[in-house]
Simulated assay, not measured.
Amino acid sequence: MATGLDGKCALVTGVSGSGQVGVAVAQALADLGASLAISARNRANVEARAAELRSRDARVLALPADLTNEQQVNEAIDRMVREYGRIDILVNLAGGLTRYKPAVEHSLDDWQHEMNNNLLSSFLCSRAGFVRMRDSGGGTIINFARAGLPQANMVAYNCAKAGIEALTRTFALEGRDVGIRVNAVAPGLVDTESNIAAMKPKDLKHWAKRDDVAQAVAFLASDASAGVTGQVLAVTGWGV
């Protein structure tokens, strides 16, 4: 039976840790019929996640790469295109909060680290993916912003995620005439294994579920959102 993404080829970045959003996103796209490529810096983790997804009947190509490195990004996407013949969907999930301290204590290295992991990686992947989608007639790019107002002690991360929204809208404007839609998902607190371990919540009733985030991505990747571009979709569970 045909499903929503049959024949489509999707690259999901940041698929590294078990119990994280990346695996849920990749599985949701595979369940709709997409062939997958997944990427993150750690080779062992990427290959382990690929094996897990294959065990659930997904077609998966593992692409270990440093996504802050221009050459490695281009090589990874070129390999995907050689393997599958195309890239139709790009999900820029790589990144995350790693520097948590008052703004005046952020070093230049802290700033550059958060900017590179969150904003530079999304730019490099979007630029490379956009060119290949344009040449093949169109596609969809989905970035990851953040929901809610900026929080204290994460100035570099806040600024990087604000940059993601600008990146999304700029690529969306430039994609209008070449059939490329560009949107972002903005999660609130999500029930990832790492978040639960770090924050030890008493309950999760106000948190978004990984599968909720994955279904939002699947919606933006599919023809169900054919009229949607340049938008940021908040996924906050009940924590509005």
Rank of each mutant, 00 (worst) to 15 (best):
V190Q: 09
H106R: 06
G175P: 08
L204T: 15
P102T: 05
S16M: 04
V12H: 04
P64T: 00
G4V: 11
D177S: 13
A166P: 05
V178T: 13
P64E: 06
D212Y: 02
A152R: 15
A2E: 12
N158M: 10
A65T: 01
I141G: 03
R43L: 04
A208T: 07
W111T: 04
G188S: 12
V240S: 15
A44F: 08
S225V: 13
A40E: 01
A218G: 08
S225Q: 09
V131Y: 12
N45K: 12
K101H: 06
R86T: 07
R54T: 12
A216F: 05
Q151R: 15
A208C: 10
Q71K: 13
M80A: 03
V182W: 01
I164E: 08
N116H: 06
V240R: 14
I87S: 00
V240Q: 14
G148Y: 09
H206K: 15
P150H: 10
V25G: 06
S107K: 08
S122V: 05
A145K: 04
N158Y: 08
Q72R: 08
L149T: 11
L189M: 07
T98R: 11
N183C: 09
D212E: 15
L173W: 10
R79D: 12
G230P: 03
L173F: 11
L189H: 02
V213W: 02
A40Y: 00
D203F: 02
L124G: 02
R176V: 12
K101P: 00
G139S: 04
A103K: 01
V190R: 05
R181M: 11
L32D: 14
G95Y: 00
V190W: 01
C125P: 03
T170H: 07
D135G: 06
K200G: 12
M133A: 03
D110R: 07
R49Y: 07
R134M: 11
R99Q: 09
V235L: 08
T68C: 00
A128S: 12
D109H: 12
A44W: 09
E83F: 01
F144H: 10
Q72K: 10
R56K: 10
P201E: 05
M154I: 05
A162I: 04
A58Q: 01
R132D: 06
L32K: 11
H106I: 10
S122Q: 02
P150A: 10
G19D: 07
D88W: 06
T68I: 00
A34S: 02
Q71H: 13
A186W: 02
Q231I: 13
